[in-house]
């Protein structure tokens, strides 16, 4: 179960016990309850730091953690945050799904959030923005994703694509019908559903598959995997791409394309992504904690907890649908994190 009912129960039992004890005393005189930090919260001073410390029944940590960024990393982050909050009821974590770029430029690099999730490494322009605002950060790998290209279940000709064919389909100067990609394929328009330009998925796909050819404008762009699946299930001649977790949870709705990067077609799966066979579309996912925030104990603890959980197969693979880190990578990330914490 999640944290809240338990939290509510412990608090209410405690409150009830004090109330019962209190009611006896109040019959004679006013009973008092001194575990109250006077003047907290109501001063209207706009303070945002967690001052509800007295409410936390278990755990010594308290404070707020704000997280924004990639919608691809969002499910992983919520899953880990859920467990962390269940153990530390004094910590309030809020998570927004804003897209990697939106999170960096609107929240993280102006100092509003403590973490930013990204499905691609930070860009140069964002680095500049961060350093302009004196926001230092450390890059942590969170998991590996197998970017999945999907087609309609009735499509039986394009179940295997080479990277060149994929580029022909998605490039700005590419094909407009399937027969232009391969003359044996039907002479039908290609219907494309892909990630929006603010998305890290778009950036990664662009770089890994298209290179300098550039992404076509002739496609339905969205941040919502759901929309892509609906589009692809709706037409036999449609194609789309998104992160692996959606396909992992709904393998029957659409067909994943096996990608041939020169060594024969490879289907996306947790195995092929982790052993490096699924190229070039397996990609690392990141989260960027701010060094300044890591100076606060509850943020540092959460960051440690996060890195610890990145090898947890139950959460990362089964519940969310990404490839967990290897122990080796995890150790690297942890030492990187500890360095940053000691700097802060």
């Amino acid at each position: 179960m999640s944290s809240n009912p338990e939290d509510g129960r412990t608090v209410s039992r405690r409150a009830a016990l004090t109330s019962i004890a209190g009611a006896g005393a109040v019959a004679l005189a006013g009973c008092t309850d001194a575990n109250n930090d006077a003047g907290s919260g109501d001063g209207g001073s706009g303070e945002q730091s967690g001052d509800g410390g007295s409410e936390s029944g278990s755990g010594e940590l308290s404070g707020d953690i704000s997280i924004a960024g990639s919608s691809t990393v969002f499910p992983l982050m919520t899953a880990i945050a859920e467990d962390f909050q269940a153990e530390n009821s004094g910590v309030n974590i809020d998570i927004s799904s804003t897209g990697s770029g939106g999170g960096f430029s609107n929240y993280f690099c102006v100092g509003e959030t403590d973490f930013n999730n990204a499905s691609r490494p930070i860009k140069e322009s964002e680095e500049t923005l961060c350093s302009d605002n004196d926001v230092e950060y450390v890059e942590l790998v969170a998991a590996t994703d197998a970017l999945t290209v999907v087609i309609n279940n009735d499509n039986d000709f394009a179940t295997e694509l080479t990277v060149d064919q994929l580029a022909d389909i998605w490039a700005a100067d590419g094909a407009s019908t399937w027969s232009e990609v391969n003359s044996e394929w039907p002479d039908e328009e290609i219907e494309r559903y892909g990630a929006a330009e603010t998305s890290g998925t778009f950036d990664y796909f662009n770089e890994a598959v298209l290179g300098e050819r550039g992404h076509t404008d002739d496609y339905s762009a969205t941040e919502q995997d759901n929309t892509i699946v609906q589009g692809v299930t709706g037409s036999e001649y449609a194609i789309g791409y998104f992160g692996f977790s959606y396909y992992f949870q709904n393998p029957d709705e659409v067909t994943a394309v096996a990608i041939d990067d020169g060594d024969g077609p490879v289907e996306p799966s947790l195995d092929t992504a982790s052993n490096g066979e699924y190229t070039p579309l397996s990609r690392p996912l990141f989260t960027y904690p701010s060094v300044e925030s890591l100076g606060e104990e509850h943020v540092a603890e959460f960051a440690r907890y996060f890195v610890e959980q990145t090898t947890n197969e139950e959460i990362v693979a089964n519940d969310v649908g990404y490839v967990p880190l290897t122990d080796e990578t995890q150790e690297e990330q942890m030492s990187k994190l500890e360095d940053a914490i000691s700097q802060a």
Partner: peptide
């Protein structure tokens, strides 16, 4: 910038909420 997901109910009118 309201949060998409928060795990505990807000405890003051200045805390971030969904």
């Amino acid at each position: 910038g309201a949060a998409t997901t928060v795990f505990s109910a807000p405890d003051s009118i200045w805390s971030k909420l969904s």
